[in-house]
Design a protein around this nucleic acid. Sequence first.
RNA 1: GGCUCGUUGGUCAAGCGGUUAAGACGUAGGCCUCUCACGCCUGAAACAGGGGUUCGAUUCCCCUACGAGUCACCA
Length: 486
Amino acid sequence: MITTVRTRYAPSPTGFMHVGNLRTAIYEYLIAKSNGGSFILRIEDTDQTRQVEGAVEVIYDTLKIAGLNHDEGPDIGGAYGPYIQSHRKTGYLEYAKQLVDKGAAYYCFCDKERLEELHRDGKEGISKYDRHCLRLSKEEIKAKLESGAPFVIRQLIPEGKTTFKDEVFGEITVDNKELEDQVLIKSDGLPTYNFANVVDDHLMEITHVVRGTEYLSSTPKYNLLYEAFGWEIPVYIHVTAVTNESGEKISKRKGAESIQQLVEKGYIPEAIVNYTTLLGWAPPDNREIFSLSELCDIFTLKGLSKSPSVFDYQKLKWMNGEYLKKMDFDEYYKLAEPVLKQSIKTAGIDLRHIGELCKTRIEFIRQIPSIIDFIDELPDYDIEMYTNKKMKTTSENSLDALKLLTDFLSAQEDFTNDAIYADTVKLAEEKGLKSSQLLWPLRTALSGKQATPCGASELCALLGKTESLRRLEIGIAKLESAQVEK
RNA sequence: GGCUCGUUGGUCAAGCGGUUAAGACGUAGGCCUCUCACGCCUGAAACAGGGGUUCGAUUCCCCUACGAGUCACCA
């Protein structure tokens, strides 16, 4: 029998998606796509008290940013709709009643007060529903229902043990004594998440249920439900949590950032997806840089980790730089151009070239201004920078060098990088100097910075003759006034 | 507290009874170079602890410690 793999990402619309959420979605997507299956989006909004404005849009937006295109969902439809749980409420009660008829569930009329009391009296923190309403006779139930008394429907957990198989954790057995008769249908008539989930997964023919390990302990109850209905149990894949440096599961409350915020901070979506996938999953080989479609080709359940992973910004930052380096130049330039335009007002500068120089030296586009800000305006710098042991320069010989260079550059006609470099080296040779003894002071005078995106000769070409000479003059003045002070 | 799960360098992680215990980020040092960066090379750094099983345990079993999850008419 050939069954198509169907996975679903089933978030509740809280208006926030962090890397933990994203990672679950990625794995669902990859499991489906690596098997030629379908990836479905379903919104789990059965809690009417927690509706958040615009929350569903955040989910659409995030999936789109990440490139996780779903095959079915509220916004695009599909053969198994509707894809918003609150829109499909009609069926749940009927299914719950089926369970009542089968003896796998029962009506409960206990009010909040009684339940609270029950919890309060519970010993040692263990408090299960006491099956008070299970004792009700058929007639009593009928009478209460007819009188319009509010009710819930609870799952009747049978005696024994329940075993289920998870693809990452293996077989897990739990004594049913640990399981509570959980509510299936709430008094507002809506299903609980736990019930809606089972019914919808079955109705939507979901083959692989992927979710966080927080559901590991309720999985036996799901299995009991599937068994009571006589439905086929899906493949379970429980994925571990993503934590912060302190080992706490990341959450909005703990200061996690949303995917949208990460993108706003300059992280490239592909890098976020790449890094997030590797957080809790290891590829069969040693590669680390993967596109989403490459991941589809090589993804296997085998690489999923059993222990939680700490989210490491440092490594994500590195990966972001890697993506920037390998990015197609035009695509990169589209991102860099606005930043370049803003930080360079000087006319006649080839921005594309500057962009090119920056490309391999940054991890974020926003780092560009700080490495090129000297172009518009020479920053005030410390003359200590002229002294460099390795370059064999001191403030004294730098002064001589700058004077020499002023004469030399004034006379220089070919103001291209190659020509200036070659001629400067030649000049140094003639004067019995190391080329660095000219080039180092030159770079310093032109940029006033410890680090520049290119060498001294290229700086000359970049700034032009007039500006270069002007900056040399400033350098000379700085060095001379320092000598006078001595 | 009960139950369930987990524990390889600072972090992500490979390993699936016999290895000098991979690799990556970070870190230290070096090389290259007109600076920085890129790139390249090298180094430091780990099997939580204790018992078994076995000729042999990071790998299998048990106990302890630590951590996580869960115990709602929330998802």
